[in-house]
Amino acid sequence: MSDKKQWPIWEVFIRSKNGLEHRHAGSLHASDAEMALENARDVYTRRQEGVSIWVVESKHIHATNPEEAGELFEPAADKVYRHPTFYVLPDELKHI
């Protein structure tokens, strides 16, 4: 195994068309940001998949831990009053 430095990993986000959000498309390696953008263009938009690209070096992404998923996300489960169907109104009522 050579001890040469590898090109860092970048995460690629692509906006498929204006009006839509950028979505995670995948990853790639690049030595700098400009190259990451160009590589992303060449790797992930060969079939007109995008009109805009974001790249971010993977090491800069902070993520929640799956073990904390319970405390983070389950408390929202019983807050049904945040959803419109919680409120009972007569069917004949329109535009509400």
Binding site: S2, K4, K5, Q6, W7, S31, D32, M35
Partner: peptide, 15 residues
């Protein structure tokens, strides 16, 4: 390709 990959990393570090 090794020298090419090395060159790119070194250039990025210099920048």
């Amino acid at each position: 390709g090794e020298w090419v990959r090395d060159a790119a990393v070194t250039h990025a570090e210099k920048k």
